[in-house]
Design a protein around this nucleic acid. Structure first.
Lengths: 343, 343
DNA sequence: CTGAAAGCGCTTACAG
DNA sequence: CTGAAAGCGCTTACAG
């Protein structure tokens, strides 16, 4: 009397159904070459017994792995946790399991994680988080992933990467443009940019959008302070200190993500600088707390949860002849942190 | 000429090192019964070739699985994303991979995820999120996990569960006590509790702590409004509406987690009710944004990241004769959302 | 200390 | 349509 759950083998199901191992395997895989009648009987028995295939045996024997690897900068960064939420949601529906690892925004560590995931034989790899401007940074990862895809693995990325894979592309440039245009419309002309780590494509693209909007108004980004610090909350604090000290004429700050904007707001609050009366502040991403900050944050909304889902959807399709690209769209969300420039 | 990475098999390493498969396996596993000299040679060759064992073959053959399954309510809930961050961090250091799934605070779904994880042959299962008061809710999960542990699987939980496993226990009752005591000291006597879903142990324990503090002061919780809604931000909004409508005399609100407190603050802000001047508000958990809210939130700090790490540490140890318990401690963080009662 | 062999639980040609 | 058999890449008794 076989026990249910693990411990129960396919051979047990086969014997009980009175068929061979091979037939049982085919029936459960839904492969054809089995009569409807026999297939149904096998499935029935399998269900009754509560049989679940051993994924190790299955994968070793050549079947597909049903786990997806997801690489994020950090899961406890809201931007990435929302993406992860979207991935897990869809994975759940598809009966897939997702393994999450941290890249820590370090190309070398990211490469190590990719290798690790491949060694674990995941069937799909998803890379979220910014690509790196330096082509060398991703060259090896690209090669490793190419070999992986050659071997049937599927890859999708979120963001502008040089990884030769299907991509979900956040509207970074257009979003940066919208943000700057919003401030310019409010009359701001002395705008500082609180930018993240310089080598990240996300930072570069968002900045380019800002530059474009400025030039629409006959202004140039080179005339404005652009402060590069870590792409996290603390970086926003450091940058704000520097801006306040060196550029007292600034009336608006663009933080290149909401985490940095939170650092900006915290520092301004401590310094007693009123937002938006004396300083307007904008962020980017619209993480879910952005609406609850003091004051609530004007920002660009990116559909993070959907982005996670889209990335997995792309990876679930067979590889196309050339990498697919899915732009995300964006939305300017005007809240209380922006107001007219001081006249 | 074997290729590096996957595709490279142990037999390739063995041949190249001039030993048998068995010896190579022992050498790499660090098992004894191999001379130092031979073992070193094998390891050397393995490194040169970039060999990584196929985990499917290894696990199928009886080796231990190197992946840990983590069940959370939702990764994009900050409380859980911080826990997940702690788990992943330690897993990374130990060269383990972590699979995350959502329970959605539904015992039936949680059970399905546990089964799924077991079917995937993970070596460790971590269950985060509240246990359920109804003993029936976790009975089957308990049985399934018992069998899993019998078979060598390791389990640890975060929170008070009836799962018969090692546990990290958040200081819910003491935290609730500290919160209520803080408000009582400020002179509040009409205190409302914005509680989450009734059946959750987390809700029950935090409430019990509040009741104890009240009774220290000769008061009773039964005299105060306790509103049960969903244990998320939106639940905080709904509850606040109800409190404002039915209990205008209230001067302080205790939300049983920070997410609900954020909903409370949002509603009060919209209604133009000044915090803390007309209403004090406290939360629980101290998620990282709590300090950035408007106003910044008085709350109980739980070391979420450490809690994730501790849970994995427990699971990494061999099973004890009886379940281990690790209390987390807590800390009252007083910020701007609480002030003296209106006199 | 070392090796030949069996076995883990599947899938998939290969025959019939 | 169905089955017997080989093989996936390891680990672990079992001999020597």
């Amino acid at each position: 009397m076989p026990k249910p759950g693990p411990g129960l083998r396919l051979i047990d199901v086969a014997q009980r159904a009175g068929v061979s191992l091979a037939t049982a395997s085919r029936a459960l895989a839904g492969r054809d070459g089995v009569s409807e009648e026999v297939a149904n009987r096998v499935r029935q028995v399998s269900r009754e017994l509560g049989y679940v295939a051993n994924p190790f045996a299955r994968t070793l024997a050549g079947g597909a792995s049903s786990t997806v690897g997801l690489i994020v900068h950090q899961v406890d960064d809201p931007y990435f946790s929302e993406i992860a939420g979207g991935v897990i949601k869809l994975a759940d529906e598809q009966n897939l399991l997702v393994q999450i690892c941290h890249s820590g925004r370090d190309p070398a560590h990211e490469l190590r994680q990719i290798r690790n995931l491949i060694a674990q034989r995941v069937g799909i790899i998803l890379v979220a988080g910014s690509g790196y401007h330096d082509p060398h940074a991703e060259a090896e990862a690209r090669a490793v992933l190419a070999a992986y895809q050659q071997g049937g693995g599927r890859v999708a990325v979120i963001g502008r990467h040089a990884l030769g894979a299907d991509a979900v592309l956040p509207d970074n440039q257009a979003g940066g443009h919208a943000l700057a245009a919003h401030l310019l419309e409010l009359g701001h002309r002395r705008i500082a940019v609180v930018a993240g780590t310089p080598g990240l494509n996300t930072v570069i693209d968002r900045t380019a959008g800002i530059a474009a909007a400025l030039s629409d108004h006959g202004l140039s980004l080179s005339g404005m302070p652009v402060v590069h610090t870590d792409f996290v909350r603390e970086g926003g604090r450091v940058a704000t200190d520097r801006i306040l000290r060196d550029h007292p004429e600034v009336t608006a700050i663009i933080a290149l993500n909401d985490a940095m904007a939170m650092g900006v707001l915290a520092t301004l609050r401590e310094r007693g600088i009123a937002v938006p009366d004396r300083m307007s502040v904008v962020g980017f991403d619209d993480v879910s707390v952005a609406a609850d900050l003091a004051p609530s944050l004007t920002t660009i909304r990116l559909p993070m949860t959907d982005m996670g889902r889209m990335a997995l959807e792309l990876a679930l399709k067979p590889k196309a002849s050339r990498p697919r690209r899915r732009p995300t769209g964006h939305q300017l969300i005007v809240r209380d942190s922006t107001g007219p420039a001081i006249s």
